[in-house]
Design a protein around this nucleic acid. Sequence first.
DNA 1: ACCTGAACACCGTTCAAGT
DNA 2: ACCTGAACACCGTTCAAGT
Lengths: 229, 229
Amino acid sequence: MAPRNAPRSRRERPAKPALTYDGIVATAVRLMKDEGLRRVTMRRLAQELDTGPASLYVYVANTAELHAAILEELLGAVDLTPVAAPGDWRDRLAGVLGSYTEVLFQHPDLAHSALVARPSGPNYLALVEAVLALLHEGGVPDGQAAWGVDVLLQVATATAAEQSARDRDAAAEDEHLALVAALRAVPAETYPRIAALAGDLVSGTPEQRLAWTFRAVINGARTTARTTD
Amino acid sequence: MAPRNAPRSRRERPAKPALTYDGIVATAVRLMKDEGLRRVTMRRLAQELDTGPASLYVYVANTAELHAAILEELLGAVDLTPVAAPGDWRDRLAGVLGSYTEVLFQHPDLAHSALVARPSGPNYLALVEAVLALLHEGGVPDGQAAWGVDVLLQVATATAAEQSARDRDAAAEDEHLALVAALRAVPAETYPRIAALAGDLVSGTPEQRLAWTFRAVINGARTTARTTD
DNA sequence: ACCTGAACACCGTTCAAGT
DNA sequence: ACCTGAACACCGTTCAAGT
């Protein structure tokens, strides 16, 4: 046992390290990994940093910005090596997008927040750059590449966000099952095409569907001119 | 002035009409149009219905389901007449999708909730049926049409959701401006493609970009086989 | 400049108890 | 079966006052 009244805790563990933006974000990332994004609230985070919630507003404008900062941090894990690897550009682009998707699927609540407040830090920019570089290599015209990168990242993000809601709580899963049931039980007179395609509409894993979607969007972006109409 | 103590209010305005699912949803729709989706909470809605929040849980499983029911209601306003109109199937499909987008842009908070909990009522099914019918008319193979309808509705919904966040609060708009600024100020050595396309990346209105995206996804879905790999 | 206590104005959801 | 009061366990954000 340490002697009583020793000034240890005062000197070795300064109870309150000064607040910094980086420190706040790092704590937020840890909190999210430990307890999920739902618990990364201004109040809970302030508690973790041994302060009051008002103090955080000096560094972060609101909760959405905080969540965007967490995502930006995690985007450092996206594998961008396919950009410089050999092989077909489409496959390598699908690889980068697949890696982005994996990051989102591992922390799926973030995908949801990414749709609302996109990050704009270096890791996000590096991802955009990688996608643009591969579209350029594939000969996709600049204007189409510029708009195409948005669509590609958006479908990946939206798919992860949808999936995340179902993973998180049973109610969202129930609702998805309700949709599947509704599609299968639909009267063929009123909805002939839905009835004809019932099986196809719900087939495949999210990953399989997303892989096809990436290819389809890449092909579409490559071949669809940006006419001003 | 009416005579005092008349039993009027007791007989002519029964203070509490019985709760029903339809009544709850109708009140929720009205409340959203009056005060915005943010105010359509279980507590606020219960107050509007002159009861306690616990009573609503007899009819609605949770807030997400309530919001999905509101959207399903509003989807009745989507214009599906292009399905049976003359003209190029692509243009008519873009028309249906554009009408769906307009509904979402008018009540943009709903778009956000639609990504999490999709509706599965008759209006949503009619929209899916319309898109499938037009893809069928265009000769898009069944499997590709089945997966393509999802992508088309998803990009429309995700675009509206993004836009809604910016319309709603200034903070989200600031964040978007931060991204635009970051894209324009990026060092050309580190991010050569972003620098080269800076103007294109942020050009166009959401409507213009979405119109191109619809065409690109339709083309991609039409030409991209669903190989099992 | 930075930090904070305290307050304002809310939330979703559950559950035992009533009718 | 349906409805409810009351409670549990939280929220985001602001602002005047302190250091």
